[in-house]
């Protein structure tokens, strides 16, 4: 295997709030390989966005503790100073946000905003050069009539078109890693299909790695190469996309896949559910964070309740569960779709 583009080791992010310390990300480690698409899936509050923001160093403030290592090109991104960070953002890693309307500045034309992203890294570029680059970027993301549209303001675009602009801004410096945080959640399905396809083709063209964060397992199935499933700030499963959907190896993943409604499913019987609700991140359960909702939990005083499980190999995947491998594989084979 080639060397990873970015390695995250034992990442912890916690927020100090009035009610206590919120452990949003609690010891997550993973790699992103060059050119691959890593999907991160989880429910709200599972820490997927916080992980992404940590890589971009967007969640730093006085009330936040971040520890661990994020190594990219031999540098720990958590240790570089602000000046250096500015040279890395946009060029090494760039981000596409969920809501394209709030990601864009309403007072500047979209052409201006794409140009700004380019100029930060190419301060000596001439006006005509920048114009060329901006036009090119807009053509690539499929904006019709770019010469006319570059002087339009964000409110003059539809949601899908705005997201294309945000993608153009993210890709204008040809970053090695594109982080897309719920890039299609605010969009309609027909437009979502367009945007996902666009990200896919641009990824092939630029050879960037993509970290796609979503709560939608359908989106994951169609775009990701590998998947990390997050729950309550922990990575509970890391697997290739085919294995994840065929034989999930963590009870949470099994439950998640079971509660997905499918278009072909004509059964009107009760849907499978995961009972209960995700835990409060201030008061995480001891041991495995999932144990209060887990059907297979081993009971009083078992490892499930006392010791936090770590990711380890189960079948072809990696799972953080105390159950014996044979049982996990059996659960997965039965519960998988």
């Amino acid at each position: 295997m080639s060397t990873p583009l970015i390695s995250i080791r034992d990442l912890h992010v916690s927020f100090h709030t009035q009610d206590g310390v919120v452990k949003a990300v609690d010891g997550v480690s993973f790699d992103v390989m060059p050119g691959e698409t890593l999907g991160i899936v989880g429910e709200s509050g599972s820490g997927k966005s916080v992980t992404a923001n940590a890589i971009m160093r967007l969640n730093f403030g006085t009330q936040v503790d971040v520890s661990g290592e994020i190594i990219m090109n031999g540098k720990n991104l958590l240790e570089v100073d602000d000046d250096e960070l500015r040279t890395l953002r946009g060029r090494q890693m760039a981000m596409v946000f969920q809501d394209p309307l709030t990601a864009l500045n309403p007072f500047y034309t979209v052409g201006n905003q794409i140009a700004e992203a380019y100029l930060i890294h190419h301060p000596k570029a001439t006006k005509s050069e920048v114009r060329e680059i901006v036009l090119n970027a807009m053509v690539k993301v499929g904006i019709p009539e770019p010469t006319k549209r570059m002087d339009s303001y964000p409110h003059e675009f539809s949601g899908g078109m705005r997201q294309r602009i945000v993608i153009a801004i993210a890709l204008v410096n040809n970053p090695q890693l594109l982080i897309a945080d719920e890039p299609t959640t605010a969009l309609d399905v027909t437009v979502q299909a367009q945007i996902l396809e666009l990200i896919g083709t641009l990824q092939e063209e630029y050879g960037s790695a993509v970290m796609l964060i979503t709560h939608d397992l359908g989106v994951i199935a169609e775009t990701a190469d590998r998947v990390m499933v997050m729950y309550a700030g922990h990575a509970v499963e890391l697997a290739n996309v085919d294995e994840l959907f065929e034989t999930p190896t963590h009870p949470y993943t099994v439950g998640l896949l079971g509660s997905v409604h499918s278009l072909d499913d004509s059964s009107r019987g009760a849907l499978q559910t995961i009972s209960g609700t995700p835990p409060s991140l201030i008061n995480l359960p001891t041991g495995c964070a999932f144990h209060p909702r887990c059907r297979f939990e081993l009971g009083e005083n078992s490892l499930c309740r006392t010791e936090a499980p770590q990711l380890h190999a189960v079948g072809k995947s990696r799972s953080a569960c105390h159950l014996p491998e044979s049982q996990l594989l059996q659960i997965g084979a039965k519960g998988g779709v």
Binding site: M161, D188, T190, E222
Partner: peptide
């Protein structure tokens, strides 16, 4: 038809095989 084919399917095998109708433009 387009709406159904645009909806992502939570199964990578089916997702890869089926042909997707891509609508152009917006509403």
């Amino acid at each position: 038809k387009a709406l159904m084919s645009a909806a992502p399917v939570a199964d990578p095998k089916i997702g890869r095989e089926r042909k997707r109708i891509m609508l152009t433009g917006d509403v």
